[in-house]
Nucleic acid binder design. Structure first.
Lengths: 113, 113
DNA sequence: AATTTATTTAACTTATTGGTTGAATAACCT
DNA sequence: AGGTTATTCAACCAATAAGTTAAATAAATT
């Protein structure tokens, strides 16, 4: 369940345009038109990027009159951060333990080399 | 500089096979062959995934005899975590502030609607 | 030296992505 | 009703990604 949610969130964050859109949305909600202004892209391209962000659960697009107002939904972001934070801590811990054992501690105590 | 590093790290993390490989490597270093065992994939496919992880700076592959031993490099992971943590905190803060203002705070005080 | 074992590289296929343009939809303004 | 404005949808294109198989490289074993 969280499985492919992570796929979508990380994939959404892997594009600099989408990260820039998220940064912009951090300053407050904005319409699609407003959001596409700073980019050398068509309206449609930005709309697609927003679709990706929306499907990843990072952004909510709400119809208001003839425009769509977008805003950040930080819940999905939290999934990704939680994954990274847990793994980073875990891995760093493991690596420290391994380094403390001269650096070859593959767990197999065969003593060779 | 950090710019496309983030692209590569997030893209690398967007694939469940690659996340599984990283999880496996957290238990200690392993050869490519050893790593590909649990996956219904060819050797070559896993080797490619390791290439992606390596170019993202997440994994180091070191030749040892005729095999390649892989291990995690948590430095790049830290870049991603730092990005997410900063943004999450920032966004959540912003959202809380906005919510406190009834929810329409676009920053433009034109008073319409 | 010949063979096996571990891994990568190359060539190829199929699917997905990021972009375009142009038509479609729907709301607002005369 | 007719025209403009905001946005999406559909069709298309080029580039990338994820997988395959088969050949290439290089170390270990016999």
């Amino acid at each position: 369940m969280v499985e492919y949610t992570l796929d979508r969130v990380f994939k959404a964050l892997a594009d600099p345009t989408r990260r820039a859109i998220l940064d912009r949305l951090a300053a407050g909600e904005a319409t699609v038109g407003h959001l596409s202004e700073p980019f050398p892209l068509t309206f449609a391209a930005v709309s697609k990027h927003l679709g990706v962000l929306e499907r990843a659960g990072l952004v909510i697009r709400e119809a208001r009159g003839r425009e769509r107002v977008c805003r950040i939904d930080p819940a999905a972001l939290d999934d990704a951060r939680a994954w990274l934070e847990f793994h980073e801590r875990f891995w760093t811990e493991r690596l420290n333990a391994l380094n403390a054992l001269v650096g070859t501690g593959s767990g197999k105590p065969d003593g060779s080399r």
